[in-house]
Design a protein around this nucleic acid. Sequence first.
DNA 1: TTGAATT
Length: 333
Amino acid sequence: MEDQNDDSSTNLIINYLPQTLTDEEFRSLFLSVGPISSSKIVRDKATNYSYGFGFVVYERAQDAQRAIETLSGLQLQNKRIKVAHARPSGDQIKGANLYVRNLPSHWTETELNKLFQPYGKIIQSRILIDLGTGLSRRVGFVLYDTRDEAENAIKCLSGKTPEGCTEPIMIKFADDNTKKIKQQAQVQYVPIPNFAAPGPMRTQPNRFQRFNPMAGNFNGQGPGMVPNQGGYTLFVYNIGFQATDRTLWQLFSPFGTVQKVNIMLDHEKNQCKGYGFVTMTNYQEAQNAINCLNGFFFQGRVLQVSFKNQNQQQPQQQQPQMQPQQQVTLGNQ
DNA sequence: TTGAATT
């Protein structure tokens, strides 16, 4: 690419993308902020497996900034995406990720960072949690800004026993993820609506559902579902008074094909009445959107999302005559 | 043998 006009202010890296997010969904999401010159989810060349991150280059720096402000932290399926300026790429930032074992079981990222930050700038760190028990698996990752810093940390910390601990920690460079291929394409994320595990509470309830590509059709109807030409309309309540059609678009399009969205407006106050409607093509995708977004904490409110027809809150979604809002229609854009 | 932060 020959986009060298101050790449650092327009080039964004997006982390923690859900595995099933498509390139089109990814692009649409960021297009909603402003014109972009390129977008890409980084994938394995052979299998197309998403590594869970991507890049977006905006045409204007102010749009890139706004994307960081409005989209970072957005919940997409089972992930909260992170949007940030990409660091200038180069050899020195490669191979800067460390794998750490034998961590004290009560440690969080805070303690991990405290131990590692004397040796360099930490870009990201995490401790793995056992999903069944909610307890630490006592392994984690520390990503430094540069390879040199990571090497330095290994030299200084490897085999050392941190203060107040009984065992030495083990450190090595993390595997190069771009060389590993998960052949089993994320098949088993079974919907477990009320997976109530005993033990410590999770930060996020595990009510997120993924599609199983082997069981039915990702874009089509699930087994036994009756196709509905009109689509499935969802009622979205408590979305706040600043919400626009774009808000609904951003929230729902990651879950599938959205036919139209419709924010109900208070024309006197010229603002949202606090609710709206979303029509999705596929039942399965609509149900998934409900599972993921109902009860989701969004901009200081708890969203309520349901099928419109199950609780007959509103008459018909007739478009008010004066409605100046254009409807977002998903076609081939 | 770990999650997924440099195209």
